[in-house]
Design a protein around this nucleic acid. Sequence first.
DNA 1: GCGTGAACGTAC
DNA 2: GACGTACGTTCACGCA
Length: 885
Amino acid sequence: MTRERFFIVDAFAHIFRSFYAIRNIDNNAVYGFTMMLRKLIADENPEYLAIAFDTSEPTFRKELYPEYKANRDAMPESLVPQIPLIKEMIEGYNIPMVAMPGFEADDIIGTLAKRAAEQGVQAVIVSGDKDMLQLVQGDDIVMFDPKKGVHYLGEAGIPEFFGCRPNQIIDLLSIWGDSADNIPGVKGVGEKGAKKYLAEYGSLDGIYENLDKITAKRARTGFEEARETIDLTKTLITIRTDLDLTFDKDTYVRKEPDANGLRAFFTRLDFKSLVDATPPKLKRISRDYQLLDTEERLKEVLAEIRDKGFFVFDIETTSLNTIEAELVGMALATEVNQAYYVPLRHEGQDATWSDSAEALLKDVLADTNIIKCAHNAKYDISVLFNLGWDVAGRIEDTMLMSYLINPNEDRHGMDHLAEKLLNYRTIHFDEVAGSGKDMVTFDKVPLDKACNYAAEDADITFQLYDILFPRLKEQDLHRVYDTVERPLIPVLARVENSGVQIDEGYLKTMSAKMAEEIEALEQAIYELAGEEFNIKSTKQLGVILFEKLGLPTVKKTSKTKSYSTDQSVLETLSAKGHALPAKLLEYRMFTKLKSTYVDALPTMICPKTGRVHSSFNQFVAATGRLSSNNPNLQNIPIRTEMGRDIRAAFVPRDGWVFVAADYSQIELRLMAHFSGDDTLVQGFRSGEDIHRRTAGEIMDVDVNLVTDDMRRAAKSINFGLIYGMGEFRLAQELGITRKKAREYMETYFEKMPRVLGFRDEVIEKAREIGEIRTYFGRHRQLPELASRNKNLQAQGERLAVNTLIQGTAAEIIKIAMIRLDEAIREQDLQAKLLLQVHDELVLECPEEEKEVVSRLLGETMEHVVHFEVPLVAEVRTGTNWKETK
DNA sequence: GCGTGAACGTAC
DNA sequence: GACGTACGTTCACGCA
């Protein structure tokens, strides 16, 4: 259990620091001090907190020694009016301020720290002032400098920092004196001398007893001259710890800040970033994390879980890779601030215990009457599935909730959410298990540390659930959560665990052939360039092409305004008859395919299963699509013949076949349904070539008279519609003038007016509510629409249309995956879903299941929704992925 | 040596 | 400035 902590802040030390560190804004000290305070609370989450102030009254030191601080300049004029503002801010945060006439903040801090330590609470002095080090006492009173981040100076830290023992600090400071406070020290003795004599004679008294032994003339004279004043110096330097102050927990315990008051205050001071920031909430004052290492206690907690019907769990393993991960322990949370850690297979644990504890946990996880919750549940259930555990019943996922609430955000990790939503800094994994080459697997982490870390994760997940689940409902996101995303989690876990087989030998052969081609191309390129250079360096290539050879520059790159050498540039140059760009295009294609796919895929084969287990990420794409990585199996080439050959390396297991299906034109079909445009709807209903049909309509010719060029133009517009393409892009794509492109688009919208109307309605609605909603109720905030920047607004408009179409298509295929998985399990088929590529699903099944799986796949995909136009899925089978096209 | 951003190219 | 969503590879560069 972590000890309670009392943080005491030296107000003026931080006020001056902020005042001088921050320039160019009004009320700089107020701002800086507020930021420091917020960070302190967020990062450290102290149980108790106080801020100590000096008063303007003369202090006892001044009475003893009139020259005390006599050399201090008056407070800068622009700082004076900020002091009452700072006090107002602190009141808003509801933090006690302590001041005592006749004494300094230091004395208040010293006394309070001592009193807190006497009551078993750790006192943390928030200051960068070295004088404060005299107060440090073991782990009972420590120092913390917020400017340097986490920098505790326990007693052990002092010798190396100061070069003397803690109980010598007052003497050391007395010898040095304090020029800032106008306190004279011992003349002729500097830092080195002071430390040396203290080390030799133990204390100031010791030095005076042995003064005759000091041979250095100047030092000895200095000490003799200071003999009269040294006691006074010592008194001035000594921080008092005997003031008439008590530490009582009720006074200093953290309290809820006045959020409205603070917002008004920050608005008044025009601190824009603070107005909208969540004020640090009070939380987690008392937490109870327990190690569950006896069967009796475990059973008690599990009984409580059964009784409640809900709990949070979080597993600890030896690896982030779900295939390789071994289960080490499981954390459970039953309510906020109440969590447990069940160590299962830590180093040295008894196997009898592991087996019996696991059996008990299995029962609860398999119990469909109990709701489970985890943060990123896919990970936990993947690992448990691999170990043969059943995780059944409703599984909530706080990471999923966070994603649905804000799909534009890319961080949904627990550490980040805890800081953002709970103002709490969690214990990070590397803080218990180390990082880099010092990292140990979790089974080597001592039980007390493991418990604090793991139980905290479960607890934080519980707290996130308490915040996120109500928001999900408030924002009307529970439907997409319940019908699409939450049921998808176990399906994805199974897809990832299945993996896919790769024909390694085939790729190795292919790689060798490509290496030869690349070698030849390299030579030809060097020849044409007249020198050898790094062809892969766009910088070097630009110099060769546009400076050495003097080819005309086609365009510059957007960020750095350097020569662009991309495909379109090389094609333009090649079309002008230049030989080098043509070779470069070929070289680029070979090297791209070889390094990204042919050579990379074999390295991703899992040694344990012999298959490639890509991740399918549910919380990445802002539209609701899945993404894939390690490796990305959603961008395997298909367009070029050479690229397509890579797909032949994806093979089913022995005696099995691939069954794949892709939605035909799903996004354009959604456009047809949403807009209700006659041409599109009729085109899709009659099953004819939709691009040909729209071409006929725009060009006003019979479908049979549509030329390839006309079809190409219509196809570009059809696709462009979904992305919000402009005439500039269309012109570029078709190699026509902007004027001509504009004419095409105008005709398109004249002939198919409801497409334009639909677009406008979507944008209008989105602008009104600030977000777009997909068919199944997913939302995406579109702040761009409220922007005063025209370009950003236009982008917002494109995002609105595209997210509706792309997001709805993503939901449809997700539902197909869920139903397919369900049907496969219900019908006891062996078929396994292996890949999803946005509009395509790839399965493998035994030869004898081929027909039934083909039919099941096609029908499942086609019957997800019943729209104005049919959804068509084209099913194919093959002995590798290439064959299924 | 390591992390990061830019440029490029693959997919839907 | 001009078409949406992703991910991986390579290079260049700054920092330790």
